[in-house]
Amino acid sequence: MTFFVLGIDGASWNVIRPNLKVLKNFARLIQAGKAKEIVLREKPISAAIWCGMFSGKTVEEHGHLEFTKDGKIVKREDIPVKFIWDILKDKIDVRVLNVPFVVPPYSFNVDFRPVGFGLPSNEKEWEEELERVTETTKELLTWKPDLLISVFTLLDRVQHFHWGEPVVLEWYKKLDEKIGELVWDTGFLPSETNKLILISDHGFCSFGEAKVQTLPKRTPYGELKGDHLERAVLITVNVEEEIEQPQDVFRVLEKEFLRTKS
């Protein structure tokens, strides 16, 4: 059994839902499992949400809000928490790839160099991340680890620069194809035993649509096209437990691998 957590930074139902005809692998996964919208209790700030998702802590508890603090780039060592991989590493084979709670994103038990420091910012880098995360994840899946966590960051970055433009859907389509390669073509699914959580840290929207604005409209380099939305994507396959908030991912994994099931 492999438990595969596939993270997609910034994936948003408001793009996926109306386009399920062309996002065939999203559609197929929704068919195969359960889909829902997570309404975040915390502010949709990527660093904080990914950190909570894999530490099980609220933002007050882990204290990690942004990629930088007082102008300094925050490192893994600055965050005083145990992540799920720290807790499980002696018990199971756990592989972690490109989790963007810090920049460059964090990998564990995997030799992976993030594309553009995990902040891919142009077409070439988006393509590259798509390829490299997919290829590495595919390879890891063939080793059948107990737990594999893998994250794509590109959709979020694309949306920062292009929200509202047709090109956004094009990148969703490219990612959709990669999801197909990862989940179906590798034989990971269909399966009675393998478990999948596909999850985003927040959605995306136009400025003014989010409850709290978390991105500036202008940067020293130009205009941003959209803002983080406090609604995230969740699709699970073969996972019985309910996931209401990002922190529940930690609890589900902890339960799966630490506690004996009744």
Binding site: S46, I73, S121
Partner: peptide, 15 residues
């Protein structure tokens, strides 16, 4: 570190 800061600024993650 400087490159990362520049990217963060461009994306609006660092003001």
């Amino acid at each position: 570190a400087e490159k990362i800061r520049r990217r963060l600024r461009a994306l609006g993650y660092l003001r």
